[in-house]
Simulated scan of single mutants.
Amino acid sequence: MAPPITIFIDADACPVKDETYRVAARYGLHVYVVANAFLNVPREPWIERVIVSDSFDAADDWIAERAGPGAIVVTADVPLASRCVKAGASALSPTGKPFTDASVGLALATRNLMQDLREAGAITGGPKPFSPKDRSAFLGALDRAVMRLRRAEGA
């Protein structure tokens, strides 16, 4: 039997928490909202706020230790996504881009290259602003991920 579908949100600076709650409510899924500081979350029995220490990567470690088959991890953090995918979880960026075995290596290499270029002063800007199109792409990707895992539960 497949494990129940659970969603983990790497909540610090996550722009799609409300969208995740809507999808989780539709399918009756449990959501863990993980952060290193207090965040307001809806008072629902299926939404659980998890506050971890403020040590480096504490939220990432908490999520990675629990993510596996049946889990969907919402994060913009490429190293966390890599850890979760290797553990058998599904991982989605807030823009709806799924992280897979095939894509996470390239995403890590790109992230490291961009970090090196920023440190060298070659790039001074950050990522492009989050858009309504990104929000819509995320909703579609999360819905597809849930449906894929639900089909696997029935298999």
Rank of each mutant, 00 (worst) to 15 (best):
A2L: 11
A2P: 14
P4N: 08
I5T: 07
A11D: 07
D12N: 11
A13E: 05
V16D: 01
E19F: 03
T20E: 04
A25P: 10
R26D: 05
L29P: 06
L29I: 01
H30I: 02
V31I: 01
N36P: 03
A37E: 15
A37H: 14
L39P: 03
N40Y: 14
P42K: 09
P42L: 08
W46T: 13
I47A: 04
R49K: 09
S53M: 04
S53T: 07
D54W: 02
D57M: 13
A58E: 08
A58S: 04
A59Q: 02
D60V: 00
D60R: 01
D61L: 10
D61H: 12
W62Y: 00
I63T: 08
E65D: 15
R66C: 07
A67D: 00
A67E: 07
T75C: 05
D77K: 08
V78I: 10
P79D: 12
L80H: 00
S82D: 13
S82Q: 10
C84Q: 00
V85F: 01
A89I: 00
L92N: 11
L92I: 02
S93G: 13
T95Q: 09
G96R: 11
G96I: 09
K97S: 12
P98A: 10
D101H: 14
A102Y: 06
A102Q: 13
G105N: 10
G105L: 00
L106R: 13
L108S: 09
R111Q: 09
N112D: 15
N112A: 14
L113Q: 06
Q115G: 13
D116N: 13
E119A: 10
A120Y: 03
G121D: 03
G121F: 02
A122F: 12
A122C: 14
T124E: 14
G125D: 13
F130L: 03
K133Q: 15
A137W: 03
L142K: 00
L142M: 07
D143F: 02
M147G: 12
R148G: 08
L149Y: 05
R150D: 12
R150S: 11
A152C: 03
G154W: 09
A155E: 05
